[in-house]
Design a protein around this nucleic acid. Structure first.
Lengths: 330, 330
DNA sequence: CTGAAAGCGCTTACAG
DNA sequence: CTGAAAGCGCTTACAG
C-alpha cells in the first residue's frame, strides 16, 4: 500500500480509501490507484485490517473425527456449503477436525487459543464436557445438525420430526398402512424425533402403532446390530437413516423379498448409501444449503452482536423420489 | 498482554518473553506471568505476531470440487491427515474447495488474495490454466497426489507404478498367470503409470501381455463405460481403482461368476468402495499419512526458504489383504 | 478531496 | 534480568 502511495506521490490513507471504495477520493484518482495496484500485483493484507478491527474474518468449523470416516462424507459436504456461504460474506472457513483424543480430554483447538476465528460452528454431536467448555468460550458458537440440552447454545437443525412425518404421510398416500420404523429410539435424540414424526403421521391417519413394527438397528453404543424382521411383514419400512435402509434392503433381498415389488423402503439423509442400493432409495434429503446459509447468517450476526440469541432453528428437508417405494393404489 | 503486564507492574516485553519461553526472564517471574495469564484467560493473538513476522501460520489446502462428491471422501480424509501434521507444527490448515466455476475462470481463492496463508497444498488434479496461475503466485506451492508437466511445481505422489507392480507380483505369487488390467490407459497419467507397473511385473515373470487383457473402464472424458469382459476370462483382474473394482465385481456376479472362487479381483486406493464390495476388496492403500507428512514438511521448508526445490517425490502404498483374491497354489 | 497522527497487539534489537 | 522504542500494514477520526 505504501509502495503504491509512493509511486503516485499520495498518502496511504488515500490508497486505503480507494481500494475499499470509501468516500473521500475523486473517482479519477480512485481508478488510477486501482489500476496501479493491479499492475504492481498488490495483495491486500487482511492481517493488518484484522488487527486494527479485532476481527479475523475467519469462522472455525469443528467436526468430530468420528463423522469423517471413509463412509461418512456427509459432514464434509456440509462444510463445502458452509465455506461457500462464508466466502460470499467475505469470510473464510477454517475446518478443524476434532480428534477423539482432543475431544475426550477437552483440548480446545489452536484456532481458538490463537484467536484465529471470530466464531465457531460445531458440526455434529460432541460430548457434554466439550460442549460445556465451548459454552464457556468468550466467542460466539452455533451448533449445526445437533443440539445439547445441557446448555442453551443456538442450534440449526434438520427438522427430523417433520421430515419423517412427511415421509410417512407419503407412504400412506401411496396406499401403505402396515409401516414399520427401523431405528433404536433410545440411541440418539435425532432418531427419537424421527420416530415421533412417524408416530404422529400414524396417529393422524388413525393407524395403530404396532410394537413389533418398531425395530431396533443398533445397540446403545451406536454399533449396528442385525435387524429382526417382524413375523408379519409390513408393506413398507421407514428407516432412520440411509445406511440402515441399505442394510435392510440387502437383508430383504437375501430372504427373497423384492424391493419395491414385495416391500417398500424409505431412508433418511440422502447420503452415499441412498444411491448404492438397488433399487436406489427414496429418502429425505437434509437441506444442507439452507442450513448452512442460516448457520452462517446467525454466527456472523453473533460476531457483531454477542448478545444475539436464536435458540433452536429447524430446517425442513425434502423428499427425494427414487425407486424404492411402490404405489399400492394402482 | 498489556493487562498482564500492568497487573504485575512489569513491561509487556517481559510478558512476551515469558510466554514464549525466551531467554532473559527469571524462572520465578516466568512462572508467575504464566499463571496470571492462565488465570486471566489470556488468549494469544496470533494476528499481531503474524503481522510483525510476516507469517500467517496458515497453510491453504485447495481441493477441486469434483473430488468431494458424495462418493468421494478420499481427499477429505487426506485433508484430515494434513491438518493433523500442520497442527503439530504450530500451523493451521485452511481448506478451500475450488468450485468448477472458479477453476475454469481461474479465480484464485480469497485466502490467497488476502494473504491468509503462507503457502498452498493443491490436493487433486487441477486444469492447466489454473496450475499455471498458481505457478505464477509469489507463494510456495506443493501439488499433492498429482503432477503437471507444464510447469515444475514440487509434487508428492503415490507411487502408482510400484504399487500396481507389487499388487501384480502378489497375484502371480498366488498362482495367477492370466491377469487382466482394467483402466483406460490414455485417460490419466496415474492410470497409465499403474498400467506400466502391471506390465513391468508381467515382463519380469515372462508373462505375455495380452491385448484383450487391457480393458478400458471410462471414456476420454472420464465417464465410466460398461466393462467388456474378454472372451477368454482371466483368473484375476487388477483394477486401476476401487470404484471400478466395485463395478466389475457386480458385473461378474450378474454373469454368475463368483469372486474370488472363479475369479480374483484387486483394486487400488482403499477407498469406500473397497469395503462395499462383497467380498471385501484386496487393494493397495495410498499412504496418506506419510504423504501428508512429507507434503507439510516440504511446504513449511519452502515457506522459510523460497528457493527450495524437491521435484517429484513418490510415496509407496501398502497392500491391504482382504477377501477378493484366491490363492491358486492350494 | 486529501493527508498527518494514532493505534490495533505483538516482537526484535538494543540499551541499561 | 528487565524495559523503552520502533515497526509490521492497515484503518479511523479528525484537521486542513
Amino acid at each position: 500500500m505504501r509502495d503504491i502511495a509512493e509511486k503516485l506521490s499520495i498518502s496511504s490513507v488515500t490508497v486505503s480509501k480507494a481500494l475499499n471504495d470509501k468516500e473521500g477520493v475523486s473517482d479519477e484518482l480512485k481508478e488510477k490507484i486501482k489500476s496501479v495496484a493491479e499492475e504492481m500485483g498488490y495483495r491486500f493484507n487482511t492481517l493488518a485490517k484484522s488487527m486494527k478491527e479485532g476481527y479475523s474474518y475467519n469462522i472455525g468449523v469443528i467436526i468430530p473425527e468420528r463423522f469423517t470416516g471413509t463412509t461418512q462424507s456427509f459432514y464434509l459436504q456440509f462444510y463445502q456449503y458452509i465455506s461457500q456461504v462464508l466466502d460470499s460474506r467475505q469470510y473464510s472457513g477454517i475446518l478443524h477436525i476434532l480428534s477423539e483424543e482432543d475431544e475426550t480430554s477437552v483440548r480446545l483447538p489452536r484456532i481458538y487459543n490463537e484467536r484465529k476465528a471470530d466464531g465457531f460452528i460445531i458440526l455434529g454431536q460432541i460430548n457434554n464436557d466439550y460442549a460445556a467448555a465451548i459454552y464457556d468460550m468468550d466467542v460466539p458458537v452455533i451448533f449445526l445438525d445437533f443440539y445439547n440440552d445441557q446448555n442453551n447454545i443456538d442450534s440449526v437443525l434438520t427438522d427430523n420430526f417433520y421430515g419423517v412425518y412427511e415421509a410417512t404421510n407419503y407412504l400412506i398416500k401411496s396406499g401403505h398402512r402396515k409401516i414399520a420404523f427401523v431405528g433404536n429410539i433410545y440411541a440418539t435424540s435425532s432418531i427419537q424425533d424421527r420416530y415421533l414424526g412417524y408416530y404422529k403421521s400414524l396417529l393422524e391417519h388413525r393407524i395403530r402403532l404396532e410394537e413389533s413394527y418398531v425395530i431396533s438397528d443398533r445397540d446403545e453404543r451406536g454399533r449396528f446390530i442385525d435387524i429382526d424382521l417382524p413375523a408379519d411383514l409390513p408393506t413398507a419400512f421407514i428407516c432412520n437413516c440411509d445406511q440402515v435402509a441399505y442394510n435392510l434392503i440387502n437383508l430383504l433381498k437375501k430372504k427373497g423379498i423384492n424391493v419395491p415389488e414385495d416391500c417398500s423402503v424409505m431412508g433418511f439423509d440422502n447420503d452415499i448409501y441412498a444411491t448404492l442400493t438397488e433399487p436406489q432409495l427414496t429418502t429425505v434429503a437434509v437441506d444442507m444449503e439452507e442450513m448452512s446459509r442460516v448457520a452462517v447468517k446467525f454466527i456472523l450476526e453473533k460476531v457483531r452482536d454477542k448478545d444475539k440469541k436464536y435458540g433452536r432453528t429447524f430446517i425442513k428437508g425434502n423428499i427425494i423420489y427414487r425407486e424404492s417405494v411402490r404405489d399400492l393404489n394402482n
